[in-house]
C-alpha cells in the first residue's frame, strides 16, 4: 500500500509555517511539510537540530510559537474536546524510552488505550494485548512490571502500546536506538510490515542510517544552523545526489567537526 506518488491523495499531516522553540530560543523557524497516507516519513538530523522539538509539536505536546499542525484536518492544538479525542484515538505515539506506567503490569499498560476507547470484553482485550506483545517479540511478559524489564524491552512494550488501537497515524521517537542490532532490525521490519499491511501513516524520528534506508519512503532533514529543513526526498537519492555537504556528510557518515577542507579519512569534503 505504499503510495505511488505522494501527491495522489490529500495529506494526513500538514505542517504549516511552524515556528517552535522555548521562550526566546527559536529552534525551528517557518517549517512546512506534509505527510501522505500510508507513507513512512523519517525526520532526521544531527543532535540538537530540533527533531524531538518538532515531534512534540506534531503530537500537540508543545504549542507552536507560530504556524499550525493539522492531522486529518484537525489542529492538534484545537480546543474542541470531541475533535481532539477522535484525533487521539487515531494517533499512537511510541516514546523514546517507552514511557510505561511503572505501577501497572505490561498487559495493563497496553490494555489502557483499549479500555479507554473501546467496549471490548476483557477476554478480547487480553488476546489483543498478547497479540501486540507477540508482535514486538515479548510474548509471555503480560504480568511483569516495567521495572523488571530491560530498557530495550520497555521500549518495545511502548511500541506495542502505541499500536494497541491500530491507529491510522503512528509517531516513533528513535525506535531502534539502544536496541541490539538484531532486535533493531526486527523492529524496523515490523514497522514496515504494519505499514504495508494496514496502510498506517508513520512519522519516525531517528538518526540510524540503516534504519532510515530500511523503512523510509521519504525523509525530512533538519539542520541546527538553518533552524529548518535542508533536504527532503528519497534517502537513497539524497545519499547519491545531494549537493549540500551537510546532507551528503550525514548520509555518507562523514564527520563534520571542523577540519580544513579534508576530513580525517583524507577524502575531500563536498
Amino acid at each position: 500500500m505504499r503510495p505511488t506518488t505522494p501527491a495522489d491523495s490529500p495529506p494526513v499531516i500538514v505542517v504549516e509555517g511552524l515556528t517552535a522553540g522555548y521562550g526566546d530560543l527559536i529552534i525551528l523557524e517557518n517549517v512546512s511539510f506534509e505527510v501522505y497516507p500510508g507513507e513512512i516519513l523519517v525526520i532526521l538530523g544531527g543532535s540538537g537540530c530540533g527533531k524531538s522539538t518538532l515531534m512534540k509539536n506534531l503530537i500537540g505536546l508543545y504549542k507552536p510559537l507560530a504556524g499550525r499542525v493539522l492531522i486529518k484536518g484537525v489542529d492538534v492544538n484545537s480546543h474542541d474536546e470531541t475533535e481532539l479525542r477522535q484525533l487521539r484515538r487515531n494517533v499512537g505515539v511510541a516514546f523514546q524510552s517507552g514511557a510505561l506506567f511503572g505501577s501497572m503490569t505490561i498487559a495493563e499498560n497496553i490494555a489502557l488505550p483499549l479500555r479507554e476507547y473501546t467496549t471490548l470484553a476483557q477476554e478480547t482485550i487480553d488476546r489483543l494485548v498478547r497479540l501486540k506483545l507477540s508482535m514486538v517479540g515479548l510474548a509471555g511478559y503480560d504480568h511483569h512490571l516495567p521495572g523488571e524489564l530491560s530498557g530495550g524491552m520497555q521500549k518495545r512494550v511502548g511500541l506495542a502500546r502505541a499500536l494497541a488501537l491500530d491507529p491510522a497515524v503512528v509517531f516513533f521517537d528513535e525506535p531502534s536506538a539502544g536496541l541490539d542490532p538484531v532486535t533493531g532490525v526486527e523492529l524496523d521490519l515490523l514497522i514496515k510490515d504494519i505499514n504495508a499491511a494496514m496502510g498506517t501513516t508513520m512519522v519516525v524520528v531517528t538518526h540510524e542510517l540503516l534504519s532510515i534506508f530500511t523503512i523510509a519512503h521519504r525523509v525530512v532533514m533538519l539542520d541546527k544552523g538553518e533552524r529548518g529543513i535542508i533536504a527532503r526526498g528519497d534517502p537513497r537519492y539524497l545519499r547519491e545526489h545531494s549537493t549540500d555537504p551537510r546532507v551528503w556528510n550525514f548520509f555518507n557518515r562523514q564527520p563534520s567537526f571542523s577540519r580544513g577542507g579534508e576530513n580525517r579519512y583524507g577524502q575531500k569534503n563536498l
Partner: peptide, 24 residues
Amino acid sequence: SEASRRLLNLIDRQALAAPPLKAL
C-alpha cells in the same frame, strides 16, 4: 489480499496460546 496475508503472517499463533511467564 497481499496486505491481509502480511498481517496474518505477523500473528504468532503459538505465542498467543502460550501462558504468561509469570502468574498473577
